[in-house]
């Protein structure tokens, strides 16, 4: 990923990177991945930092990394040297939903945006345990479960 992005950014002004729920990133071929897995199994590290580290390493000098999703505690091996020496900007936060409600509802009303495309499954509330398992393991191409009480 970093190599491909480097090629893409050769002719571009800047790179912006954004991560969501990157704490659940699972794919990695790095030694750090093994380190994360061991520490998480022992509950000594609460986050999986692979996607976050990769987003930082991939971001071009002077670019911005926007971190969304959810992080609860601590991540190891955070590459602060890469952030500082390459003048990256990091911005993050739980969404300040209230300030987006009216403008985004307006866009839904005009038909400009229809977020319903993310829904893959509707289940009765009583099937919530099944919904969690399906969503966790991405069974049956599960992208989003809506429960109906």
């Amino acid at each position: 990923m970093p190599v491909v992005l480097k090629e893409l950014t050769e002719a571009a002004a800047r790179t912006r990177a954004s991560t969501a729920s990157a704490s659940r990133a699972t794919t990695s071929h790095t030694l750090v991945h093994g380190y994360d897995r061991v520490k998480q199994a022992a509950r000594l590290e609460t986050e999986r930092g692979h996607a976050l580290r990769e987003a930082i390493f991939s971001c071009r000098n002077g670019g911005a990394v926007s971190i969304m999703g959810v992080y609860g505690g601590f991540v190891d091996k955070f590459p602060i040297g890469s952030v500082m020496n390459r003048s990256l900007t990091i911005k993050t936060g739980q969404a300040h939903v209230h300030r987006y409600l009216r403008p985004l509802l307006g866009r839904i009303e005009t038909g400009e945006i229809d977020p319903s495309f993310v829904v893959s499954h509707h289940l009765p509330l009583d099937d919530a345990p099944k919904g969690y398992e399906m969503f966790k393991h991405k069974q049956d191409n599960c992208t989003k479960v809506v429960l109906k009480p």
């Binding site: 954004s18 969501a20 729920s21 699972t26 926007s66 739980q94 969404a95 989003k144």
Partner: peptide, 26 residues
């Protein structure tokens, strides 16, 4: 929806920028 929107907004994306998104879900 607002979370994804704010994620893009925080990047202050400008013309010509290259955007990469790491994410496992919607």
């Amino acid at each position: 929806f607002p979370t994804g929107y704010m994620g893009a907004e925080l990047c202050d994306i400008q013309r010509g920028d290259v955007i990469a998104v790491w994410a496992p879900g919607p």
